[in-house]
Every structure is written in structure tokens, then in C-alpha cells.
Simulated scan of single mutants.
Amino acid sequence: MQIRQLGKTGPQSSGLGLGCMGMSGMYGPADRAESIATIHAALDVGINLLDTGDFYGMGHNEMLIGEALKGRKRDQPILSVKFGALRDPSSGWIGFDGRPAAVKTFLAYTLQRLGVDYIDIYRPARLDPNVPIEDTVGAIADMVKAGYVRHIGLSEVGAETIRRAAKVHPIVDLQIEYSLISRGIEDCILPVCRELGIGITGYGVLSRGLISGHWQQGSAGAGDFRAHSPRFQGGNVEKNLALVETLRQVAAAKGASVAQIAIAWVAAQDKSIVPVVGSRRRDQLQEALGALDVTLTPADLAAIEQAIPKGAAAGERYQTAQMAHLDSEKA
């Protein structure tokens, strides 16, 4: 397994991380036994970064991971946890809470659900517009001093917020969407992270399956949020799938799958970047692992760039209301 350092002060992560969100209903029903088997398979091959959020399935995802980790050594996984998103009983999204007292409360429940006594990387899932980032990060820093958290991360925040947070406490990584069709971080955010020695855990490397090479129009079923995602809408999805077919030609020339090329491209952009794959099944995980064996030459990278130029995607990565709340999308 390839190893990558998360920031100047962070832990050593496997070259791929496993994102567990899809195991708790975000993409429709998931098989519990298969989800746990996938987590076990990932750990057994050396993937040590497990990413979750306390709001995935309203705690379901953390309990699932806690069940999967029973009997395992605590230092085997790096548990990366996002917090702060608020949901109502009907699963609706109703805001974000980054107040210091809320931070410590969220953490207490997370420790209980996961069945552990510390979290490796703890991060606010979004920026609370009503709470200075210094206060939120300061509260996590208190938990670092108390031994409940090992490292502090950020998620979906912009360059200015990153700088402000880093003045309070060392930040080991920024979790943010990064893929062939989501390259917004390249202009300002990635340079700042490089300057400050902050790693990147890139999620959405397959754009939620859109550029996996397996997606077919109309595949989103009941309970799958992709049914309402702009890039999966009629018109947009047709243009985006046409890009995938162009990429498929590059993949065929390399003897790799489309998904493997897309993952390898993200990993090739910087040694500080760890792609996080949202595999819900062992066969998906096995395909993703194949990306570690793909070496992209300058000629390959040029061919990929020609197949999917920067800014070629049709549609935004989130709905308009959600995009407006993303600090990472603000100029």
C-alpha cells in the first residue's frame, strides 16, 4: 500500500481513503453486511483512512463503522470525522452549528457511537457563518489538549478561512471535492494548502459515480440524492457522460478502467493529496485499488486533459442553495 503524509504534522495515510457515507443511505439503500465486509477488506489490504460524518444516516454511519472495528486494534484505522451539519427527523438539512459547546457535544456522541476514546482527525463539515472559524477550531484544539482528538482538519472552506484556522492550531488536511470535473481548488485553495503544509483528502473523485464509467442515465433510485444533483439532470448528464466516453478511450489505451484513470489522475496532481473513494461494495473497492497500479506519464496526463478539459462539466456540483453556503466556492 502506498503511503502519503497528511500535512506537515498529520498522520501517514494510505494512498487511498475509504469514504463511508454511501453505506448509510445517501445513495439509496445499502447492504449492511456488505458494507462491513467492504470496510474489513479495505483495512486488510492496508487502507487505513476511514472517512465519515456524524450526520451520515443521523449517526448510522458511525455505528456501522464502530461495529466493523470491533476486535481491531485502535491504531489500525485513521478515523476522520466531520461534524456540525444539522438535520431534522425527516432527514432534511436545517443548518450548521460550529459553536464551541456544540463542537464538544457532537464529539461526545461520536466517541460513543464509534466506540473509541479518541478521533484521529476531527473537522467541521462546513463553515458556520455565525461563528468565527477561530472559535470552532479553538474548541477542537481544547479537545486535542484533553486527548479526545489527535489532529484537526477542515472541509469545504476557502483560502482565507484556511489561513485564519491555521493561525489557531496546525491543520493537517482539507477535505474537499476534487476530480477531473471539479477542479475549483486549483486556482487559490490548493496553492494555499501547499504553502501552509496542509494535505488534501479529495472526495468525489469519481463525481459520485458520474465519471466512474459505470453510470447510466436514470440510475438514481429512491433515496438517492443524485436524482436532484445538477450534474445528473437531463441535458447536463448527457453532456457529462459524453466526456466519460472520451475518457474511456484513454483508459483503454492504458489497459485500465475509467474509474482507475480518474482516481489515478487525482493522486497524480500532488503527493499531498489522498483520493477518498466511496466504495460501498467489495467489487467497487477492488476496482479502485487498481488505480494504485496506474502510472500516468506526461503524455497520459495531456491526453486526459484533452479528453476532459478544465471546466468542461455541465452543471454545478451541488444545488444552488447548497452552493451558496460553501465557503470554498466564494471568491
Rank of each mutant, 00 (worst) to 15 (best):
R163Q: 11
K167P: 01
D173R: 05
V157N: 01
C188Q: 08
Q175Y: 09
P191H: 13
R163W: 15
I162Q: 01
V168A: 08
E156M: 12
A159L: 06
D173H: 10
R183N: 02
H151R: 06
S179Q: 03
G153E: 05
E177Q: 13
V168K: 04
H169A: 14
A165V: 08
I171L: 09
E156C: 11
V149I: 14
A141G: 04
S179D: 03
G158Y: 11
R194C: 06
S155L: 11
Y148V: 07
L154F: 15
G147K: 10
V172P: 00
E195A: 07
P191T: 13
G184E: 05
I181C: 01
A141Q: 09
A166Y: 13
L174P: 00
V172A: 06
A139I: 09
V168C: 07
H151G: 04
I171P: 00
I181Q: 00
T161R: 04
I162Y: 07
V168F: 14
A166V: 10
I189E: 00
V172I: 14
I162N: 02
V149L: 08
E177L: 07
G153M: 11
G147H: 12
D187F: 10
Y178N: 01
I181K: 00
I181V: 14
I189A: 02
I171E: 00
V168S: 05
G158H: 07
A166S: 15
P170T: 14
L174W: 06
M143G: 04
V192R: 01
I162H: 04
E177M: 09
R164Q: 13
D173Q: 13
H151Y: 15
A139D: 02
I185D: 00
S179L: 06
D142L: 11
I176G: 00
R163P: 04
V144A: 04
A165C: 09
H151C: 10
S179M: 05
Y178I: 05
I185V: 15
K167Q: 13
V168I: 15
V144H: 03
V157S: 02
Y148F: 15
G184W: 06
I140A: 01
D187Y: 09
E195C: 05
I171Y: 02
I176N: 05
C193L: 12
S182P: 00
K167D: 10
G147I: 14
T161N: 04
I189C: 03
Y148P: 01
I176E: 02
V157C: 07
R163G: 08
I171A: 00
R183S: 03
Y178V: 07
H151M: 10
L154G: 02
I171H: 01
V144L: 06
L180W: 07
G153C: 13
E160K: 14
G147A: 12
Y148H: 15
G147F: 15
A166H: 15
E160M: 11
K167V: 10
C193V: 08
C193E: 02
P170A: 14
D187A: 12
H169N: 09
E186T: 04
G147R: 10
S155P: 05
D187R: 09
Q175F: 12
